[in-house]
Design a protein around this nucleic acid. Structure first.
Lengths: 342, 342
DNA sequence: CTGAAAGCGCTTACAG
DNA sequence: CTGAAAGCGCTTACAG
């Protein structure tokens, strides 16, 4: 007997089992339209051949013919976070029920953004959820949706256009956090920014703008020395807050673009003998579970529950729909969650 | 003029530009074998048609014909971590140079493991890196490699078999950590385990076994009450260590299966007035950057550098190779990194 | 009940 | 220089 080919096809199986490729496909996938499946004996012969050569269906062939990929994606800005982890998990649960796969597309440097977009554009996947700040051009989103890609997009400003938009109202929530600090009497409020956040287009820098606008509204002069691009690195955040506290004119409060960096701010204060919130009030943004662990518990802004079941259900509804669904706005508003740290 | 079709194909472009589909493809991809590319005028006509209808190549068609997907994957057990984030980032950098895409395949529940494996089996991707503990059957790996999938697998025991194996020697390093604690005089050493770790097959529970075996080797009786399945949840780890410290017979040291939980152990101790390492020595496993931020700095076990360039380069070498490369063992040993917390 | 055949969208060796 | 044609692996309406 000859070696089985490196990647056997249904033709190989058909030859081996003495049937046609149509029969192989019917055995493997069942038959459409209520027709009877192949009889047991044929079935057995085919399945034996499949086992013998270790046949696996080829995605490219199947996908070209079926006009779908049976794959969905989650796109999000790196690094991954409790939200991206949780959303992947919930997507996987829904996908498993439907026999679909899930891939994550973390957006790293500039180059990776384009590569990730290619995955959507060239139809590696049937649908995708885009977490906030993926930075995809709205016209591009509309075009993708127009071509039948199922799309659920987290964005506070975009209008739905063949895709659904999840509104978190982050700007309002972030402003509420700054208001809270100001109303507690703080005037020197530092902000731990995403690196480069001040150069982002305005749609993405909601957090920084919340800080700026609310201070301005209260007639508090902006101090550029209190805006530090350290929110994406825990060691950098810790060091920055420590340095802040050693200044002659330390801030009395810190708002951080990420809960992670806010937590480091709490440590830095505690490690240097500054009480939180008495000596330094600290608020984060994001409401990750970790914020409940530290002492004092972290005041933050974010979704109350780490739950994306509605958004996930909507993606699958789009995938299951026979006719294109109209774009819909879904509200999932962020809230100010006052705990002990500010 | 009629509406452009929902998903235009090269046939549509060809018609529109008054050329053949072959010419469209040549314009889009360039010509092989030193033949001259289509002349400027043809080129322009084709590109205009492409722009007008917003043509995008279809992955399934291209991939079926080219016999490759131009996609690579990273598989890893959820949740994501600084290592998985870093590896994705380094893969993306290498992939960008070659015009490839990168997808992440986090392994969640039992069902998702199978769905993720399907992505490799059915050839959604050309290659993959598997981080430790993906739990893929070695025979399956050999079969995948035998079919030409490029594979670099982090595993301390597997023999290379058409794929490469990265050896971290985690067992040895974990034992060294326990030895370090015992040699420092500790006898009651708690272990923060991955949930279910005691039921994992032996290959995966290297950390737990390190703890058990070294204690046994020193004649220290195992205390089941000191093994807690909380290493994957920060709040759970914090609470468990706090409870441990309130017992009449608290441990004097804690080893944690994750640095994350170890960091929570440090907080829990500090919050409850127990000095680290004097009152409680704490060691983690993994060496994440965060371990350097806390006070005292975390003693841990792991790779010294968060750098996977050798492993990434090897995956791309496999992808670029014309003939199948033999499987290779790569050493990237973990080390005991003694800092201040133990 | 089964098989021959068409065709999904693309690339490419080949003929003109 | 360009186009007609074959074929990648699969599914499925259709003929027998």
């Amino acid at each position: 007997m000859t070696e089985p080919p490196a990647r056997p096809t249904q033709r190989d199986i058909a030859r081996r089992a003495g049937v046609s490729t149509a029969t192989v496909s019917y055995v493997l996938n069942g038959r459409r339209g209520g027709a009877k499946p192949p009889p047991e004996e044929t079935r057995r012969r085919v399945l034996r051949a499949v086992a013998e050569v270790g046949y696996q269906v080829d995605h490219a062939g199947r996908s070209l013919r079926r006009r779908r990929t049976d794959l969905v994606a989650l796109m999000y800005p790196a690094p991954s976070s409790p939200w991206s982890d949780r959303l992947v998990e919930q997507l996987q649960a829904g996908a498993a029920e439907r026999g679909l796969g899930v891939v994550a597309l973390p957006l790293g440097g500039a180059a990776s953004g384009d590569a990730a977009l290619r995955v959507l554009r060239e139809r590696y996947v049937d649908g995708a959820v885009l977490l906030p700040d993926c930075g995809v051009d709205p016209a591009e989103l509309a075009r993708l949706a127009g071509r039948g890609l199922a799309l659920v997009v987290f964005d506070d400003h975009l209008a739905p256009d063949g895709f659904d938009v999840v509104r978190q109202d982050r700007a309002r929530a972030c402003r509420a956090a700054v208001e809270h600090l100001v109303n507690s009497g703080h005037r020197r409020i530092a902000y731990l920014a995403h690196p480069g956040e001040d150069r982002w287009d305005t749609g993405r820098s909601v957090k920084l703008r919340g800080h700026r606008d609310v201070l301005a509204a209260h007639g508090i002069a902006a101090d550029p020395g209190l805006v530090l691009p350290v929110a994406d690195s825990r060691p950098a955040a810790y060091a920055a807050v420590r340095d802040l506290l050693l200044r002659p004119d330390p801030p009395t409060a810190v708002l951080s673009a990420t809960d992670r960096a806010a937590i480091d701010a709490v440590w830095a204060a505690r490690d240097h003998g500054v009480a939180v919130p008495e000596g330094l009030a600290v608020a984060g943004i994001g409401n990750i579970p970790e914020g409940l662990v530290i002492t004092p518990a972290l005041t933050t802004v974010g979704a109350r529950e780490l739950d994306f079941s509605r958004e996930v259900a909507r993606l699958f509804a789009r995938l299951d729909a026979t006719a294109p669904l109209p774009g819909e706005v879904m509200a999932a508003p962020w809230e100010l969650i006052v705990r002990a740290s500010a």
